[in-house]
């Protein structure tokens, strides 16, 4: 006698495209603890074999900041006199580095298959870039300890706008995550993307007000307008003001820049998620 119920799972031939989103996200939610723990393990393992261990999470950004401090302040002629500006550069660099980490780590983990998670299990693929983004956020928050030191040395002071800094961080995270998913998906089809991305990100950093002041392009003219269309112009302007106050009382306002960057972040975030999910069933074959 047979009492066969309807199957729990059915795999059938379908065209590539979006899966049923409620099922997909509830399945991804089931692996939230895995993403969190996997990310913590990654952070822990990073400096596992070094003598200084976890202290490197603070030393690394401090050294990185110091190198740019010397490069921009002394070699490129920025002048050590403007110590506050140099503090701003270090703060901006950490924010851009945070974005850079989200993108490069997501591409690398998706390409490597994340220790068999992508090729040997039915875990929704998006869990992997989520885990790598948590890792990037973790490392960024640690770098803020180093920044706090720089902030005091460069006498940037305390400002009411600092309360808006967490919003800018969340927006950078959303923008970075969406952009990372777009790049990780493209990289599955065109491997050259992972080679190109580091150069592209470096160029993007130099074209954005990271190591130069946002007030340089506040004037009119097509070139200035084009430069301000760059999402990282809004992001860096909002970030710079939130940490150190405005550089020009008649220049861009923090709320306005947060608003513009919010539009970019939400758009890129959703485009990235939908592109990644709609193509992820081809990852196992192409990876």
């Amino acid at each position: 006698m047979s009492t066969q119920s309807s199957p729990k799972i059915t795999r059938r031939a379908t065209r590539s495209g979006l899966p049923q989103l409620s099922n997909y996200f509830s399945e991804a939610w089931r692996f939230r603890t895995f993403a969190w723990r996997w990310s913590l393990a990654d952070v822990k393992a990073r400096n596992f074999e070094t003598f200084l261990g976890r202290i490197w999470h603070i030393i690394n950004p401090l050294l990185f900041g110091l190198i740019y401090f010397i490069f921009v302040g002394i070699i490129a002629g920025g002048g050590v006199g403007s110590i506050s500006f140099l503090g701003a550069i270090v703060g901006n660099l950490y924010a851009f580095l945070f974005f850079n980490m989200i993108v490069t780590m997501a591409i690398a983990t998706v390409q490597s298959g994340a220790g068999g998670v992508l090729g040997q299990s039915s875990i929704p693929r998006i869990v992997v870039p989520i885990a790598s983004t948590i890792t990037s956020m973790n490392l960024f928050l640690r770098s803020l300890v180093a920044y706090a030191l720089m902030h005091i040395i460069s006498q940037r002071g305390l400002h009411i706008e600092m309360l808006l800094a967490p919003i800018v961080v969340i927006l950078i995270c959303m923008f970075g995550f969406g952009f990372a998913l777009i790049c990780a998906t493209l990289n599955v089809y065109i491997r050259d993307v992972s080679r190109l991305i580091p150069h592209f990100l470096r160029l993007w950093m130099y074209l954005s007000p990271v190591i130069w002041e946002y007030t340089r392009i506040t004037g009119g003219g097509t070139l200035n307008q084009l430069a301000r269309f760059n999402p990282w112009y809004s992001a860096m302007t909002a970030w710079t003001i939130s940490l150190g106050g405005t550089l020009d009382p008649d220049g861009p306002k923090i709320w306005e820049q947060i608003g513009i960057f919010s539009i970019w972040s939400v758009a890129i975030f959703f485009v990235g998620i939908f592109l990644f999910i709609s193509k992820e069933d081809e990852f196992a074959i192409r990876n």
């Binding site: 066969q4 119920s5 199957p7 729990k8 799972i9 059915t10 795999r11 059938r12 031939a13 379908t14 992508l118 090729g119 040997q120 299990s121 039915s122 069933d281 196992a284 074959i285």
Partner: peptide
């Protein structure tokens, strides 16, 4: 790999009661 959903059937189906 097709059973766990990593690969997709080109034709036909797999029903799983678990």
């Amino acid at each position: 790999k097709t059973m766990i959903g990593v690969l997709k059937p080109s034709k036909g189906r797999i029903d799983l009661w678990g």
